[in-house]
């Protein structure tokens, strides 16, 4: 039987095709590992808590309630969104929480696996994939809650709702790609992680999360350029049965994300040995 041969040396292998093939082979080989890691984390998370699943959507729910209150009490005046405002606000904060969670996911998964990374050689891609599994699990719970909102406020069923999960997948892909690019630097410097969560707070206000894009002005330009906008808007339009106005931009963003995702994955793969060397065990 021919034995698999591994060579470790200073010079990196930069033939993208070969690297990508190895990377994908590793993902395929580590299917069970990624599933098991996700299962472990989810199990552990809920076994040590009574409220369990509630924590997954308490933040977007709270943010939504704040805005619903601000709107109803007349503190802030929000332009008509075409659907009941609670549905608008909650779908926004919920989609936003899915995207931010996706951005943080690769870094969080890698960080929590630090001690194994410096001791055992296993396909690192499994960490990313297990992160995606966890995202999909959390997101599906949030989606169920959103559906309750949609029906409770009388928006009703539209066939486009069936496409809604695909737009969620798009959001997860977008966030994970961004997160993967940040991860290597973020693991070296803690500043990066803080900067990201800090920056995201502001980014939320230039994204149509809790209010619609204004009809004119500088805010309109910024919001329309912001690549987070089409993700949120398309997903929301599909959920409530509006024709998705930003569909083209959404498709462009997703089309860019697919190759970028694989590039980020390779970047991640190359970076891990360098990071393990610098990380504490």
């Amino acid at each position: 039987m021919e034995l698999e041969t591994k060579v470790y040396q200073k010079e990196g292998n930069l033939r993208i095709g070969k690297l990508l093939k190895e990377s994908l082979a590793d993902i395929a080989r580590s299917r069970f590992l990624s599933f098991q890691l996700a299962k472990r984390d989810i199990q552990a998370q809920y076994r040590q808590s009574y409220l369990g699943i509630i924590w997954a959507f308490i933040t977007p729910l709270a943010t939504a309630f704040v805005w619903i209150f601000l709107n109803n009490s007349g503190t802030v005046r929000i332009t008509d969104t075409g659907i009941p405002y609670p549905v608008y606000a909650f779908s926004g904060t919920l989609l936003w929480s899915i995207i931010t969670e996706s951005i943080n996911s690769p870094m969080a998964s890698t960080n929590s696996a630090k001690s194994i990374l410096s001791k055992i050689n296993f396909p690192k891609e499994a960490l990313v994939v297990s992160g995606i599994y966890k995202l999909l699990f959390n997101s599906s719970i949030k989606v169920v809650l959103l559906l309750i909102f949609v029906f409770f406020y009388g928006v009703g069923f539209h066939w486009s709702l069936l496409l809604f999960p695909i737009s969620i997948l798009g959001g997860v892909l977008f966030g994970t790609t961004l997160g993967l690019f940040i991860t290597p630097l973020g693991l070296l410097y803690k500043d990066i992680g803080r900067m990201i969560s800090f920056g995201l707070q502001f980014l939320m206000y230039v994204t149509p999360v809790v209010y619609a894009i204004p009809k004119s002005g500088i805010m309109k330009t910024i919001m329309e350029l912001n690549p987070f906008t089409p993700i949120i808007l398309t997903a929301r339009d599909l959920a409530v049965g509006f024709p998705p106005t930003y569909l083209t931009y959404f498709l462009i963003v997703i089309a860019c994300c697919i190759p970028l995702f694989f590039i980020a994955l390779l970047f991640y793969r190359i970076s891990i040995p360098i990071l393990v060397e610098r990380m504490s065990a």
Binding site: E4, Y8, Q9, K119, I120, N121, E277
Partner: peptide, 23 residues
């Protein structure tokens, strides 16, 4: 040897399945 970090010079060639009892 376990492929966790890359060398700065020289070369390691390993054949077959590697098991590590490090942790």
């Amino acid at each position: 040897l376990n492929g966790l970090i890359n060398p700065d010079a020289g070369k390691v060639t390993i054949k077959g399945r590697v098991g590590a009892l490090i942790e």
